[in-house]
Computed example of a mutant assay.
Amino acid sequence: MSMPNEQLQKFLQEIGQKKAFAEQQLAIVRQQKVAKTREARILQLTSSEVESLPSETKVYEGVGKMFICTPIPDVQNRLTSESEQLKADLANLAKKEDYLEKTYQNSKDNLEKIIRSAGGA
């Protein structure tokens, strides 16, 4: 089964573009995962510091250019909800990374298969 040259070139170009796009998106997702992991670690450290404070300690949160006195339980609730959101984001990024890795590998395999079959023909 051989394809005309023009059709083969078009097919190779489409697969190559798909592979390049998947590779580019994979790099972006990996950077996002690193940033989210760093954020999660900062939240964890902040939470452990807030938990170690005596209950009568005044805690301030930044709002714009000012700071507002906030009760410790409110701060802990905010940190917990942000942490849960980051975990969900990381899970979604892991799924996206897995999908992109499969897309990249499939494109790469298809290109190699076509090149081998064209070279052997």
Results as ranks from 00 to 15, higher is better:
Q24F: 14
T37K: 14
E97Y: 03
Q9F: 10
E101W: 12
A88M: 15
A22V: 00
I42S: 05
T103N: 05
F21P: 00
S117F: 09
L79R: 00
K36T: 01
K102D: 14
F11I: 08
I28W: 09
N106A: 07
S52F: 15
N110P: 02
S107F: 03
F67Q: 06
T37H: 14
L45T: 02
L8R: 10
V34D: 15
T57Y: 05
K58P: 01
N77C: 00
A121M: 10
A20T: 00
D74Q: 02
N5R: 14
K36Q: 05
I68E: 08
A40M: 14
T46K: 10
M3E: 07
F21Y: 06
A22C: 07
T70R: 08
K33C: 07
I15M: 15
K19W: 00
G16Y: 04
E101A: 13
Y60N: 02
S81D: 05
L8T: 03
M1Q: 13
F11D: 11
A91P: 04
Q25T: 01
A27Y: 03
F21C: 03
P4A: 09
L53R: 11
R41T: 04
K108W: 07
P54R: 08
L90K: 08
E51Y: 14
E101S: 10
D74W: 07
E51F: 12
